[in-house]
Design a protein around this nucleic acid. Sequence first.
DNA 1: CCAGCGATCATCTGCGGATG
DNA 2: CATCCGCAGATGATCGCTGG
Length: 208
Amino acid sequence: MLSHADVWRGVDRLAEVNGLSPSGLARRAGLDPTTFNKSKRNTRDGRPRWPSTESLAKILDATQTTLGEFVSLVQPGTSVAARATIPCVRLSAAAVSQFDGAGFPQASFERIELSHLDARHLYALEIDRDDYAPVYRNGDTVLISPGVGVRRHDRVALMPKGGELRLGVLQRRTAERLTLMGLKDPEEVSAFAPADVSWLARIVWVSQ
DNA sequence: CCAGCGATCATCTGCGGATG
DNA sequence: CATCCGCAGATGATCGCTGG
């Protein structure tokens, strides 16, 4: 169960991992900058005050954070330092055998530094071909997070069973069919049966 | 180089409006 | 009536500029 302190710690951590102060986070979410002031977390007679679910929904939306990710920020021991580096995989080395069933890399790849995203749910993919230019050029690094939800129109990485890793835009996902739009050419649509997909994960960041 | 000054920003306190 | 949130004003920290 989340306590009053847990929820406020989560708000502080969410601001921190996004490089914001609590007031900056409130502003980004369209709230009054004082909404998350420490002085407003308890009433004058010392009773706890809670942020509204609407305010929480707004800061999650403003930071593209899921409720599950927010809850994970509350857990003890998830310091920013613990998120400082993440494994980095080369696109041409991204074979199906090197990932687990959830899409996390199994081999020990080199690591790159990262300061504002939760490294426990991330790995980097270095683009070392021109297949996705000009959207992703040779030398770019994209960050993939199997730990977050994938929605329509998200840029994603898809690993077909027995195939080669694909990057694209998730066009549609039903129980029978999953369609991926090409990054270079939106007219180039690939369809997959869910049973033929090893894993699908969202691209959350790109360095270029 | 350093002190003084003003601008800017974050935060705090107190109050009142909106809502249930 | 209790609670959450926005507004206004005050305060303190930081930064950049200027002049000695």
